[in-house]
Design a protein around this nucleic acid. Structure first.
Lengths: 197, 197
DNA sequence: TCCATCATGTAAACAGTTACATGATTGC
DNA sequence: GCAATCATGTAACTGTTTACATGATGGA
């Protein structure tokens, strides 16, 4: 998929995509900032939602530049040009707007989870496979939770307050999913033998 | 965004996208099933992740047909042809594979929430706007929770077991987000006056 | 008669994706 | 000298998106 959320924007002078606003916010947090640094930030983030591929980021930065939201300061680096970006006043204005209530409705309703989607349709699998699926989902969720917790509590690393809060939120979401998956497994076990779920 | 998750598939004879597998599962649940019915199912779902636009669904069904995963039975409807789809044996096989462990890693790590993303960068907004943002996010999340709860508990409607479980999961996720947002607001209130967060 | 809904589809635009190419710097 | 990483980018592809067109059916 090209799997981006277009913020429902038809016309020229259109809204920004989520990734565009997000990159703008990353830039604001540590300007001046190169495309490569943005990519590293994104791929170190907790979700696999964006791949942070070069093919996404470089054209995106050009778009932001064309809209006058960022400006590059260029410097030589061997034979190549190194471009570090800063927000313009217009960029800062957009960033504040992005963080302004009211949130668009789609952003609130936007809960998607490939694991939950599969559970939704798990009836289509035979019982043994249902159990195997849950065992795997639980094990993998536990593993990723461990990773995120140790990242958050790593000694010597201090995250900015809101970033730490965001990371806690992601962890709590995974904890909720884990409880939910365990409850399903328990229910499946009880149902075993005495027929259907 | 064209905001689809390509299941990291380059070659011909490639993997299915999430939406393709999802549509296959919908078909399996209520075959024979028209494109329009698939669209209604998708747009009645709990997330705004897929818009279920005609431009997405009709070509997708043609792709599934070309791969031999579904087959249409045609019937006349005025001057038009009505096409209702059924899974083939190959389609059923793919569906079982989709529901087979191990889950791909990206599917586990795939937690994305536009609200959380914005909180992540909320430092960029002045304190008053931070509070306004949280008030709005809380109110809107409460509203959508109410809607989902009443849908799940609507008298006379009985969901298939796994669909009911999936809906419970989505609700629990939103409840977790709500608790998290309230905690942030409380923390912001305490921090007020005595400086930074 | 008109309108909402059911229903089938197409066209153009677009932001992602993978894959590839290339050069600089640092440390072994 | 070599490999890993830092760094900048392009090219082709693709599954979405919005917007539009059109026809059938049923009820007010």
């Amino acid at each position: 998929m090209s799997r981006f959320k277009q913020s429902a924007a038809p016309d020229p002078g259109r809204m920004a995509t989520e990734l565009e606003s997000c990159v703008l916010a990353i830039l604001a947090q540590s300007e001046p900032c190169t495309a490569y640094a943005v990519r590293r930030f994104l791929s170190a983030s907790l979700s696999s939602y964006w791949s942070a591929s070069a093919g996404a980021i470089y054209p995106l930065l050009r778009r932001l530049e064309a809209r006058g939201w960022i400006r590059a300061q260029e410097s030589r680096w061997g034979t190549r040009v190194r471009r570090a970006f800063k927000l313009t006043r217009a960029g800062r204005r957009h960033l504040r707007e992005w963080l302004s209530p009211p949130l668009p409705t789609w952003a609130i309703a936007y809960t998607y989870d490939p694991v939950r989607t599969r559970v939704f349709f798990l009836e289509a699998a035979p019982p043994a496979q249902q159990r195997a699926f849950l065992d795997d989902a639980i094990a993998q969720t536990e593993a990723i939770l461990l990773r995120h917790r140790s990242e958050l509590n790593a000694p010597g690393v201090e995250f900015p307050p809101f970033e730490a809060i965001g990371r806690r939120g992601a962890i709590e979401e995974l904890e909720t999913r884990l409880r939910w998956l365990r409850a399903i497994r328990a229910r499946l076990r009880r149902a075993r033998g005495r027929g259907a779920l």
